[in-house]
């Protein structure tokens, strides 16, 4: 639960509930973007996602770097991705 995973904003899903669809390594899931919306979040931006919430906006280079680092973690990252895949945030 402590990993911050980078994902790219694909579309905004629900304005009031502050939900956006992100792409993490090909996995597309809904997350809450309430913590970063006031910073001017837009489609195409990269965010660091933690337990279904975008914690901060990061640049593409940082996203790629973080993803590479997470992949080096092996099983722990796979487990986290599995949990994300099971997520059904509305």
């Amino acid at each position: 639960m402590c990993l911050g995973i980078p994902g790219q904003i694909i579309e905004f899903v629900h304005e009031t509930n502050q939900i956006a669809k992100i792409d993490v390594n090909g996995v597309r899931r809904n997350v809450n973007v309430g913590l970063v919306l006031p910073d001017g979040l837009k489609v195409g931006d990269w965010v660091l996602v933690h337990v279904g919430f975008a914690l901060s906006i990061i640049d593409e280079e940082e996203a790629a770097r973080t993803l590479k680092f997470l992949e080096s973690m092996g099983q722990e990252f796979k487990d986290e991705l599995d949990e994300l895949m099971a997520s059904q945030i509305e």
């Binding site: 997350v31 279904g52 059904q88």
Partner: peptide, 11 residues
């Protein structure tokens, strides 16, 4: 049940 996010618990 285990959940990825508190929002999953809400669901």
């Amino acid at each position: 049940r285990f959940v990825y996010s508190p929002l999953d618990a809400l669901k």
